[in-house]
Design a protein around this nucleic acid. Structure first.
Lengths: 200, 200
DNA sequence: AAATAGTTTAACCAAATGGTTAACTTTGCA
DNA sequence: TGCAAAGTTAACCATTTGGTTAAACTATTT
């Protein structure tokens, strides 16, 4: 049975195409071509485009989110956790450069489904939120609420990936090597930036 | 001649739909419905979907970008410029909440065109870049390159808009009023965050 | 008022798209 | 070996989509 292999080929191909074009922009034929199979096979293994998409999308999230949350469950000092978070997230992005744009696009397309997915898996932020509030009341970091710190962090990490096509052209003379160097630099730049902002 | 009014109705309707759904997700019929006119009128005033899209997209950018750059041409102290930039940008976003997601989606769809558009209009960052380098060499702010500071700023400003559907649900119990309050807070939070990070 | 140019509409079209069908091939196993 | 199930394919289908057309309507000009 080539079944397992074919199904896997489909998932991989769908990942490529969906990541680059999003749900709306992707074509089933394109996915089939990328996988090197007949289009009917897509519907043999997955009922519909929607189901295939969900499989891919939530497969990616299931892989990404738990790793990020687990960082905050370690017993490192708080600022080291931030450093680990930045590095881990950024490493993942560098291997999946289209992911942020993809995730945010779909966040806006069907937010309820995503929200439900996270709730179902017990993925919430209360643990991290409490941790930050404690750091603030202990006077270890300057006052800031969790949503603000979270938005700041994610924003800084994600922006150079989402904006890459423009940033690379306008700020790095469209030199991809220079831009990759820039991306790598950001791990320490962001960490330093946050540490200083939090007065640590 | 209802011409001018009809054309304007089309542009406004197209703006709404394109902002929410992007180029791929938008339907010409939907735009016609939103404008309350016959679909053929879209092609009467604009040759194609692509041309209509470009008109809308670059109309928005033409309005947004110059205002942002002019802030840095004023003679305020540098950190006040940052504050003004954050406030101005954020005010614009609050009036056009779908804009960031939209812009970044299209940045990825056709980067060359956007890059050319900016070049044609002389919209480049050299002025601001020089300004920041000068601040650093004068020792007024901690060392940081322009691309890093730019990515940090834009990321922090834009993130809560791009991620709103999820953030509001997961961090604010899906209460839109609380989220709007959060968005407003961010202007000062970001400004403070940056000032402290830059050691000012 | 007649001719003309600009505006609007309903009906239509070809291409693309997600999805189905029925026949054919391969595989696992009694 | 033979047969049932799984896997695969080409051809097909209904709907959607961007776009066109020709006729009708409206305003302007003379």
């Amino acid at each position: 049975m080539g079944s397992d292999s074919t199904k896997e080929k489909i998932v991989q191909a769908a990942k490529q195409i969906f990541l680059r074009k999003g749900m709306d922009g992707a074509r089933m034929q394109e996915i089939a071509d990328e996988a090197g199979i007949n289009k009917a096979m897509l519907h043999y293994y997955f009922h519909s485009k929607d189901q295939l998409f969900d499989e891919v999308f939530y497969g990616i999230l299931s892989q990404l989110i738990p790793g990020l949350i687990s960082i905050f469950k370690s017993d490192k000092p708080f600022l080291d956790k931030i450093e680990a978070f930045v590095t881990e997230y950024d490493t993942y992005m560098s291997r999946n450069p289209f992911l942020p744009q993809f995730v945010f696009r779909e966040i806006n397309r069907d937010p309820d489904q995503l929200s439900r997915f996270m709730s179902d898996r017990g993925l919430n932020f209360e643990l991290v939120e409490g941790m930050i509030n404690r750091e603030v009341s202990n006077g270890n970091i300057r006052p800031i609420t969790f949503p603000h710190l979270f938005a700041n962090l994610i924003g800084m990490i994600v922006m150079p990936y989402i904006g890459r096509p423009l940033f690379q052209r306008k700020l790095f003379k469209n030199d991809p090597i220079e831009y990759d160097r820039f991306l790598l630099e950001r791990r320490s730049v962001i960490t330093q930036f946050v540490k200083q902002a939090l007065g640590a």
